[in-house]
Design a protein around this nucleic acid. Structure first.
Lengths: 101, 101
DNA sequence: CGCGGATATCGCTACATCGCTATATCCCGA
DNA sequence: TCGGGATATAGCGATGTAGCGATATCCGCG
């Protein structure tokens, strides 16, 4: 498998963004649909300021995007392919045996 | 998609380890088979001390393992699921389709 | 033995990130 | 226009990580 230097840093952008338990869980939640800040903070049981801070990091990394709806700041996934990545990471990739070459 | 706090930190262990261009490229290389330190350092064009340092981190994170063969310290993948993860990251995450204006 | 290549570790400085509190900003409805 | 909920940011001390050169350790071979 070959990662060029440029391709590597691109992938690292993603990996870094989810290299934090709270951020990972935020992203995982957003995979199921948009949510607003306070709801995330409550669901994940973290202070609002921290959640907001991590959302900012995710936003700057391009993983999520925000838009205002009904007075609430709603965040959603900005990179759909994250779903595959997370699913792979989550399932511990139980399907390697399937493809026995 | 649901990541429990425990499951999240487990996944983060992996993500963190590859959240560094050099480490990512090392792991990617090891996906194709074991290699020894100096070969990695030369292939990736980095000083030996740095490669060794990152290998140490990867080793401590449990992503790679080392063994001595013919006088050389040979590193290999320790987590097979990394192959799927990297393949996904490589194929899915890096920049959007090449739309040549 | 002891040399020399291979590998690991150390000491250091610079910079990023963490978690947190307090505070600032935004925006809607009354 | 004002109050207040919703959201973002600033500042802080603590900790972590990067990269580097120098040096220490390991180990097979002659």
């Amino acid at each position: 498998m070959d990662f060029g230097a440029k391709q590597a840093s691109e992938a690292v952008r993603i990996f870094k963004a989810v290299s934090h338990p709270l951020r990972l869980r935020i992203v995982a939640r957003l995979c199921d649909g948009p949510e607003h800040v306070t709801a995330l903070a409550e669901a994940l049981e973290h202070p609002q300021s921290i959640v907001s801070q991590q959302l900012r990091i995710l936003r700057m990394s391009g993983l999520v995007a925000a838009s205002r709806q009904a007075g609430l700041q709603v965040y959603r996934l900005a990179e759909v392919r994250l779903i595959d990545l997370l699913r792979c990471a989550q399932g511990c990739c139980p399907e390697p045996p399937v493809d026995n070459h």
